[in-house]
Amino acid sequence: MNIFRLAGDMTHLASVLVLLLKIHTIKSCAGVSLKTQELYALVFATRYLDIVTDFISVYNTVMKLIFLGSSFSIVWYIRHHRVVRRSYDKDQDTFRHYLLMIPCMLLALFVHEKFTFKEVMWTFSLYLEAVAILPQLVLLQRTRNIDNLTGQYVFLLGAYRGLYIFNWIYRYFTEPHFVHWITWIAGVVQTLLYADFFYYYFESWKNNVRLQLPA
């Protein structure tokens, strides 16, 4: 464990807590893409298959349970909670996210480190996470006024993988033969997808104006 990875995990934890706080407290999911939440639930479900077979550390297992539990409960809230689901804007959240799953699964079947079920599913989760934010970013462009919590959620979610990139650089230089191109490329692509959001998020913070993404 290094400071970059810990900071990344804490930022990721903060993003899911901000979203859970928003949905649980103000009972609203306005501006939140259910599609992105469903993709993230699938990302964690396919990435943490080893939660029962490979014990790495208490920290690792606890965090996996938190991410699995929070992502599935957020999906449940938006789909089934009698108050929250009324604030879900299904007419705006129209990204066909299953069109993201298919290429990711195909790519995982061809490009992976080992051709085993767990490894292919793990690789699929990496590719899927890289693009999972797209429905949310599309929804933000359609949502005229983005509330602070949703903006903070997307910012923290994008920042966590950016911190992981520093973690990979650190591990590359400190651990012999720590080389994982698939993880690195997926992580860089994922972070780059947030680039324009980060720009507008920083601009709105600097000029102290409401965050708005150009359509």
Binding site: D9, H12, D54, I56, S57, N60, M63, K64, Y164, T183
Partner: peptide
């Protein structure tokens, strides 16, 4: 134990 020598990240 080759599997989790690099799956130790979240």
């Amino acid at each position: 134990r080759d599997y989790d020598d690099y799956h130790d990240e979240l």
